[in-house]
Design a protein around this nucleic acid. Structure first.
Length: 576
RNA sequence: GCGCCCGUAGCUCAGUGGAUAGAGCAACCGCCUUCUAAGCGGUAGGUCAAAUGUUCGAAUCAUUUCGGGCGCGCCA
């Protein structure tokens, strides 16, 4: 990967190896060595604590560490000079020619070719995987957007990504769904029959029932019960899955693969899983301990268990229910074996925070079948609280009163949803204010950043009208045509490839948002300086050289903005 | 009872071993003859929940306490 921070880091690591090999210093932990962008008030572009750490480890009294540092840093091609602060930080200054060379790579979009952190490795990202028992609602939106953007980020940094949705179309919840649907159908014929408390009360089920009535009339009133239930189950699943897919289209989320739990059941891969576990003595029949909390209807029963406590979990987990059916975990485990067998180099699962307790058993499972502790990464998203009129919107799953994705979409549209769902670190809860995100002012960050793009574009349009060409004129790019503020922004622009790498490495798309807002703000600031000071205006027809220098970074700014917008998947409006 | 996440400005959040802790909103004071004022500049705002420890250095790591959230059955 072509970026100077990585190069500098390699340089410092090699340097450390050299010092250790020659016994000039006692061994150190390289992880302590950091490279940062210098804070604004300090002089310099990059800073490292290298000297701070090394100087305390010198064991050879004849060794002159300062001289060695001096001699070596001189050889780094992109460093102009450096200084060592009183407290021991080394501050580096980049060469102008290097800064402009890097800017040209941004301008020409070459940096995209240089990012191959992923080395074309194949990874599978499983996200949402909501039960097909109802439409997607607010709790699913965050995981949906996070998984989608994370996938795009992986692709951008050189991975081959499969986006996958696991459809839990087996199990007792689906049975409850079918019974709920049947009851709603019967109610349409004035049958006196009520839903049980744990069945699904949502309006959407009545709609599906009406659909059946429209198609088949009263055909199912006196039909064989088993066949009826089977028909209603399939009908419900088909319709709900379709509605989930159409909801996802609203956010432009597309999956490469839907895997159904029922397919997993049919495939018998679970037998294969059990063989693997059995060979490692991880299967046994036993009785689980009495659970904590509400245990009113608990009684001890012997069942098939997974010895996960010998791996990463704190207790063993059931694979088979007492009625002989597989547990949810058993099928999910088989599904994960299936994923493992599909030649991915890594698996990523995005789960809601309500599944955090499930993580240790899944990690145990993967550990049992794959000898690679980094093979599966489980990332979790905390909840989203909806705010309207400064009040939290209360939701109740039991009453079926939840805010659907389609509902939120109709209020605010795609871009604010996508933007805000990843603007906060995934492990932090979000307050999503429906009133703020549709405002067209700087309270609304999406708008603010898109407006920066539109403003920059308006300048480019103006230059087109005036016939000013940037192409083939890049040799005119020169530092003395640019202000301190512009150089500062240019330095941020050339750090973009490293930002992509870090965001991908840490699985943190929200870093993109922080950066995006920062450079947008810098841009708006420079723009406004042009009102007081004519030298800050982008276009000066009397000074083409000056104009070209400005347009050059302005275009690069647009490249970066557009690139981030494409990862988040929001519009890049040329005018607003 | 146990596990995980969170606690940073009045509010919403960045920063997770480095230099004087940062943005935006809200508050107050300013800036449109101009390539988009849907914007910008300035002022003010902090015992980083608390305590102890580790370290040359802690918002960041460890331990404890207090607050908030999410979980913890053969559910999914």
């Amino acid at each position: 990967m072509n970026n100077y921070i990585k190069d500098l880091s390699d340089f410092l690591f090699d340097f450390t190896d050299f010092l250790e090999d020659k016994k000039y210093i006692s061994p150190i932990n390289k992880k302590q060595i950091s490279i940062d962008y210098s804070s604004n008030k300090k002089k310099g572009d990059l800073a490292t604590n290298f000297y701070l750490i090394i100087k305390r480890k010198v064991i050879n009294e004849n060794f002159n560490i300062e001289k060695e540092i001096n001699d070596r840093i001189k050889l780094i091609e992109f460093i102009d000079h450096f200084s060592i602060s009183k407290n021991g930080f080394i501050n580096f200054f980049l060469k102008d020619e290097f800064i402009f060379k890097s800017l040209k790579e941004i301008y020409n979009k070459n940096f995209l070719n240089n990012i191959n952190y992923g080395e074309d490795k194949k990874i599978n990202v499983e996200f949402i995987s909501a039960n097909p028992t109802g439409p997607l609602h607010i709790a699913h939106i965050r995981g949906a957007v996070f998984g989608d953007v994370l996938s795009s980020l992986y692709v951008k940094t050189g991975f081959k990504v499969t986006r996958e949705y696991y459809v839990n179309d087996a199990g007792s919840q689906i049975d409850k769904l079918s019974h709920s649907l049947l009851k709603r159908y019967l109610q349409l014929f004035d049958k006196k029959i009520e839903l049980e408390e744990d069945e699904y009360p949502g309006e959407y089920i009545i709609d599906i029932a009406k659909k059946i009535k429209n198609e088949d009339g009263d055909k199912w009133l006196n039909f064989n019960r088993e066949e009826t239930i089977q028909y209603f189950k399939n009908f419900a699943l088909k319709n709900i899955l379709l509605s989930i897919k159409s909801d996802l289209e609203l956010l432009n989320i597309k999956f490469d693969k839907f895997t159904h739990e029922t397919e997993i059941e049919k495939s018998k891969i679970i037998d294969e899983l059990f063989t693997i576990l059995d060979n490692k003595s991880l299967l046994y029949n036993g009785i689980l301990e009495k659970p904590k909390g509400d245990d009113s209807d608990w009684e001890p029963r012997e069942q098939l268990l997974f010895r996960s406590s010998s791996l990463l979990d704190n207790e063993d987990r059931a694979l088979k229910k007492s009625n002989g059916e597989w547990t949810y975990f058993a099928n999910d485990a088989a599904y994960h074996l299936d994923k493992c067998k599909r030649n991915f180099d890594g698996l990523v699962n995005v789960w809601g925070s309500d599944h955090i307790g499930y993580i240790p058993r899944m990690n145990s499972l993967i550990r049992a079948i794959k000898d690679d502790e980094n093979y599966l990464k489980i990332l979790t998203c905390q909840i989203v609280r909806l705010i309207q009129n400064k009040q939290k919107i209360k939701m109740s799953k039991r009453s079926g009163n939840f805010v659907t994705l389609a509902n939120v979409y109709s209020k605010v549209g795609k871009d604010p949803i996508r933007y805000y769902m990843i603007s906060t670190k995934n492990e932090t809860a979000i307050d999503f204010d429906l009133d703020v995100v549709v405002e067209k002012n700087k309270d609304n960050k999406v708008f603010y950043c898109q407006y920066a793009y539109a403003r920059a574009s308006s300048v480019i349009n103006k230059t087109n009208e005036l016939g000013i060409k940037i192409k083939n004129n890049s040799n005119l790019l020169a530092k003395n045509n640019l202000s301190v503020e512009e150089i500062k922004l240019i330095k941020k622009l050339i750090s973009y490839p490293y930002l992509l790498y870090q965001s991908s490495f840490f699985n943190e798309p929200h870093r993109l948002i922080n950066y995006l807002e920062e450079i947008s703000s810098d841009f708006h600031s420079i723009w406004n300086k042009g009102k007081d000071n004519i030298s800050f205006r982008f276009i000066d027809e009397k000074n083409i050289e000056n104009t070209i220098s400005k347009l050059f970074w302005l275009e690069s700014f647009r490249v970066v903005l557009k690139d981030i917008f494409s990862i988040i998947d929001i519009d890049a409006p040329e005018s607003m």
